[in-house]
Nucleic acid binder design. Structure first.
Lengths: 345, 345
DNA sequence: AATTAGCACTCTGCCTGATCGAGTGCTAAT
DNA sequence: ATTAGCACTCGATCAGGCAGAGTGCTAATT
């Protein structure tokens, strides 16, 4: 099926894809004929297109309409034919403004970037921050929040702050809390959260033999706070952009499915999951994407990192008929920009 | 124009509104005639409807179609005709689940409620938490976040936690920070954030005369952290529900405007602003709502409070053709539920 | 052997006119 | 004051016709 194409076939496929990306209409042989570098008549193009259809790269919505690329066609295009366009310097400049003044917290940076990217690309932009847990703890503090609640504040390497409320029966004096605090800090600093959890588990086992009440309490509070791991933050910007796409506006069912997906955090997480670990950009086209029930969207995503470790991923969600040659460099650049901004914190 | 109606006129208006809410189609005289308690022929109904049209309560999309209520018509209906339906006990039960187990933080409660309300009503639900600043501080803590950043964590009365990063040149020893901490706490506890800001401003003026370096530092950090006031959190759930409404699906322009509004925090804040202070439910119909450019939506909202002071508001956003008799009790009950849950924290 | 001109064919989009039905407004009868 | 009757209007729906875009196939051309 997905054989390698000769030069002409490749050029025709490329032109069909690009025209379809631009117009969202089926593309006819005449149109391609005019665009070909080598002058060929529509009739010849028709033959070539028929071949491409046989190979599964194109299809016809109905007899005697032009052709549109299939998922496989887009895939071939992205893999082999895409002329990676240079990022416009204006776009680059604009994006660099994420480093703007008032932005202090790391998650503000990420959010900012997402908003910008959605504006530039005219697609919905999703950022996931899911790897807090890979960052080492810089400090951990327990604060009294109310008589029966304690607040744990964790500051991670690189500007991330997380807090959690823990329920606890009252009866802990302030100085005791402080003691517990320093116990925990001693144990925690330099570890990642999962490492800390492990450590606490171990200590708890040992601690049965010892009799330090506060130490036991410290371990207990720690394990409570770390009981469920944090699934990660998801921010979506530019949802309204999906209405720019005629294919979505014309089909309310698709629209519904997409908007619903946006409301489910874990759907989004699954969509961007594969991008997380790798540096390279990921493109999943239509049915390729890991979420069933969303066969009409493509996701272009890339992980970003902080120092050595992966932090999360950023991606654009749009129709299969995306302008990959523009969108891929955009996402790529934004992700690397994020990484470099986050590095210096 | 908006005169008081006699019994018959009122009943006709009510029936038209209710039928239109149900069907989203223009309502004809025959339909009303059949539904009237007092048996009247379509012809008579037509006369009455013509009167109602003259008074501005109804209008015809075109000659020889049925009639639909105008904004004023809906307003009259909501003010005088609405039979406030009892809340289904199943709905009530479901809503009470917000008190469910694992929910510890106050904002989780709020979010939970919002999600439930959007599911029950099949509309988009918005919650605003904007009155942190009315809550007294329970404690305030400064933590070292990195060499040049300090984290301020404020725990407010009633389970709200806020943190802010402040940039600061390095050079503060840990014990100095702790000293500053206790200065601030002494000053802050029991005050609201704006009160604290005021107080700090005052102290700063006085402090010029004195020479305590740390105290000055404390004031400086405090004023930095409180420089811009927190605008408030906005959560929106059930955006996809707006696609349930035929009037929005048929007109992409409306859809775009609404989705865009959802992306602008301050638009949402303005929409729900009036509900904030008052206990009573607010209904703003179509062009009545405080945001221009959204003449096709209605907002049903209510403030919720914590103890004495207003905390925020919760509301549903839907088409003008909303089922007010169902939606109003829903919002009302949810708001009061929120208030009572928040009270006990 | 590859390309292309020519042609018949198919399908969509769009316009037109006809018909149907729902609903109205008016008038005259009750 | 109410209503029956009637003419009228307008939207929705459907069939028919036409134009245009595009195809596939075949036979001629290079």
């Amino acid at each position: 099926m997905t054989a390698v194409l000769d030069d002409r076939g490749a050029q025709v496929l490329r032109l069909v894809v690009e025209d379809y990306i631009e117009t969202a209409e089926p593309v006819g042989s005449r149109t391609i004929s005019k665009k070909m570098s080598q002058a060929l008549s529509p009739a010849t193009i028709r033959n070539i297109m028929a071949d491409l259809e046989e190979m599964g790269y194109l299809c016809q919505p109905h007899t005697s309409a032009g052709r549109i690329p299939t998922g496989t066609g887009f895939r071939y295009y992205v893999n082999y034919l895409l002329a990676r366009r240079q990022l416009a310097s204006s776009d680059r400049d604009l994006l660099q403004k994420v480093t703007g003044e008032g932005v202090v917290g790391a998650d503000e940076v990420v959010r900012h970037a997402s908003r910008l990217l959605s504006n530039l690309s005219r697609h919905a932009c999703v950022v996931v921050i899911s790897r807090f847990s890979h960052q080492a703890l810089r400090s951990i503090s327990l604060l009294r929040a109310s008589t029966d609640k304690i607040l744990l504040v964790a500051v991670l390497q690189g500007g991330w702050v997380q807090h959690r409320l823990i329920e606890d029966e009252p009866g802990l004096a302030t100085d005791e809390l402080e003691k517990i605090n320093s116990y925990l800090n001693e144990m925690a600093v330099g570890l990642t959260l999962p490492q800390l959890r492990m450590r606490i588990m171990n200590e708890m086992r040992k601690e049965k033999a010892r009799y330090d009440r506060l130490m036991r309490k410290a371990l207990m509070l720690g394990s409570k706070a770390l009981a469920e791991s944090h699934p990660g933050e998801v921010y979506i910007e530019g949802r309204a952009n999906i209405l720019e796409q005629p294919e979505f506006v014309e089909d309310v069912q698709k629209l519904k499915r997409i908007l619903h997906a946006f409301e489910e955090k874990n759907v989004i997480l699954r969509l961007l999951d594969s991008a997380l670990e790798s540096e390279a950009i990921q493109v999943s086209i239509g049915t390729e994407n890991p979420v069933e029930g969303l066969p009409d969207i493509s996701v272009v995503s890339s992980g970003y990192h902080q120092g050595e470790s992966a932090m999360g991923s950023i991606g654009l969600i749009g129709p299969v008929r995306m302008d990959y040659s523009r969108v891929i460099p955009l996402v790529e650049y934004t992700a690397s920009l994020l990484s470099s901004i986050l590095e210096h914190r």
